[in-house]
């Protein structure tokens, strides 16, 4: 079975301000695959997620990224999102006064429009949010509140997961999805994420700890240090990492 590459990163170098953070990074993610990127704090894991999503201030100095065969770096952040890249953020931002439902509806319809699908009317939209929300323990009251304002850490993560589930991205990046979550909340989020795994959708799970990977089991594990991947393996690599610590691997290169 030949696999179709979804995301191809070639010799990527990127910096924030004057500081070079991603150095000659290479990675290919095929359709349906879940890759985990593990690394010590400050290795540039979050930088990678922002470079992929096009956050202003993260400058690519060389290298290529292709998404579904298209030049990703030529796209604006919202185009990337509409193409199917979703970043589940470590620290989702608060938007005062904007009800979560309003925000979701704008996002869903922007993405649907791009895919050539008809916009959802309010009834169907509410139905969808209600169904998907239920599994994540998100009630009506919560989505009436302004986006992330006054949300607990767990609520913010669940809302991120809800957005992922209704936007149905082809490629999701989960940036420290477990930070600030207790074990029950983590299970809820992981279930939401796993529900999206259908053999076509792909994911990049960025995490510092192995814990999360017990719940979202990756096909590949990469160790990320000093701006690039220093070692790759299967899910057992994560266990090895947990046991030995990062120092061992960082030395290897």
């Amino acid at each position: 079975m030949t696999k179709t590459p979804l995301l191809e990163i070639e010799d990527l170098c990127a910096r924030v301000g004057e500081k070079e953070i991603i150095k000659n990074f290479n990675l290919t993610v095929n359709e349906g695959e879940v890759h985990a990127i593990m690394g010590p704090n400050g290795a540039g894991k979050s930088t990678l997620s922002y470079v992929l999503t096009g956050k202003p201030g993260y400058e690519v100095t060389s290298g290529k990224i292709r998404f579904k065969g298209k030049d990703l770096l030529a796209m604006a952040p919202e185009e990337r999102a509409r193409e199917g890249i979703f970043l589940c953020m470590q620290y989702p931002v608060e938007i005062p006064g904007v009800p979560t439902t309003t925000f979701l509806k704008h996002a869903v319809n922007a993405v649907r429009k791009h895919r050539g699908e008809p916009e959802l009317d309010t009834l169907n939209f509410v139905k969808m949010v209600r169904e998907d929300g239920k599994a994540l323990g998100i009630d009506n009251e919560m989505i009436k509140r302004p986006v992330n304002v006054g949300f607990s850490g767990g609520e913010k993560k669940r809302l991120e997961t809800l957005q992922m589930s209704i936007l149905k991205p082809d490629f999701s990046i989960l940036d420290e999805a477990d930070s600030g979550l207790d074990i029950d909340a983590l299970k809820v989020v992981a279930d939401g994420v796993n529900a999206l795994r259908d053999g076509h959708r792909s994911m990049l799970v960025i995490t510092h700890y192995q814990r999360l990977l017990n719940y979202i089991v990756p096909d590949f594990v990469h160790v990320f240090a000093d701006g690039h991947i220093v070692r790759s393996g299967d899910k057992n690599l994560a266990l090895e990492l947990e046991e030995k610590g990062y120092a061992e691997f960082v030395k290897e290169k």
Partner: peptide, 21 residues
């Protein structure tokens, strides 16, 4: 960036945020 990342265009994002404000 949060709005853009969810696929919402710039002008639409401004109007969302301003209306929220």
């Amino acid at each position: 960036f949060y709005c853009l990342q969810r696929g919402i265009g710039e002008e639409e994002a401004v109007s969302l945020i301003v209306n929220g404000f």
